[in-house]
Simulated assay, not measured.
Amino acid sequence: MEFLVNLDVDNLDKAIQFYETSFGLTVGRRFGVSGAEMLGSSAPIYLLVKAEGTPAANATAQRRTYERHWTPIHLDFVVEDIESAVRRAVSVGARLEEPVATQKWGRLALMADPFGNGFCFVQFLGRGYDEIAD
């Protein structure tokens, strides 16, 4: 099975700049003004232009908004140096939502991109999640 990530954005050029600068991704392909494929992660990330205020899906009355919003799914980006990753992302529009926290398994930064999507930076320490696995 192949895994793809799709993110709705309202400004493709701004999104490309953000994901290039924050995560070191590169544009694989552009799909005119409606989308771009970002490569360099373990799964391709597709940035899809969807206008603010349009229906999120036919089965809901929710409308797209690019203010900070909650979803039960978010992306975690594993990094070697969490402070540098946070600084780089903030410099192009991300928000650090809580100070970097250190756990037994590693360090975590709760973030939001400029399009309201939550994501985290994770820097594993020691044996990573194996530090807390049964």
Rank of each mutant, 00 (worst) to 15 (best):
E20F: 13
E83H: 13
A89W: 00
L47G: 00
F3R: 12
L110G: 08
A36W: 01
M1G: 12
R64M: 02
V27K: 07
D8I: 04
S41T: 05
V92C: 01
D10L: 05
R88V: 00
E2N: 10
Q123Y: 04
A109C: 03
Y129F: 11
L39Q: 07
S84T: 12
D8G: 05
F3Y: 11
G24I: 00
G53N: 04
F119D: 02
A36M: 02
L12G: 09
M1L: 12
G28C: 02
K104F: 05
V27D: 05
Q62W: 12
R64I: 00
E83K: 10
E98F: 13
V92M: 02
L75A: 04
P72Y: 05
I16V: 14
S42M: 04
L7C: 12
L108E: 11
P55K: 15
W105T: 00
R127F: 06
I45H: 01
F31A: 08
R64Y: 06
S91Q: 03
W105S: 02
F23L: 09
L12P: 03
C120F: 03
E20G: 12
R64F: 04
V79I: 03
M111R: 08
V122E: 08
V90R: 08
A61C: 06
V86K: 06
F18E: 01
E97M: 11
A133M: 10
E97V: 11
A61T: 14
A112R: 14
T102Q: 10
A36I: 00
V122G: 06
E52R: 09
P72Q: 13
G53C: 09
R68K: 09
R127W: 04
A85C: 01
T54F: 06
A51Q: 13
F77W: 05
Y129S: 14
I82K: 02
S91H: 02
Q17D: 14
T71C: 06
F77M: 05
V27R: 09
L125Y: 07
P114Y: 10
E2P: 13
R30L: 06
V90D: 10
S34H: 14
D13I: 09
K14D: 13
R127C: 05
E2G: 15
G32P: 00
E98V: 07
I73C: 08
Q103N: 10
L125E: 12
V86S: 04
V78F: 09
F115M: 02
Y129M: 15
F23M: 05
V5W: 11
A59G: 09
Q62K: 15
H69M: 11
A101R: 15
E80F: 05
V49E: 08
N6M: 12
R63F: 03
F77S: 05
Y19D: 04
G24F: 07
S84A: 08
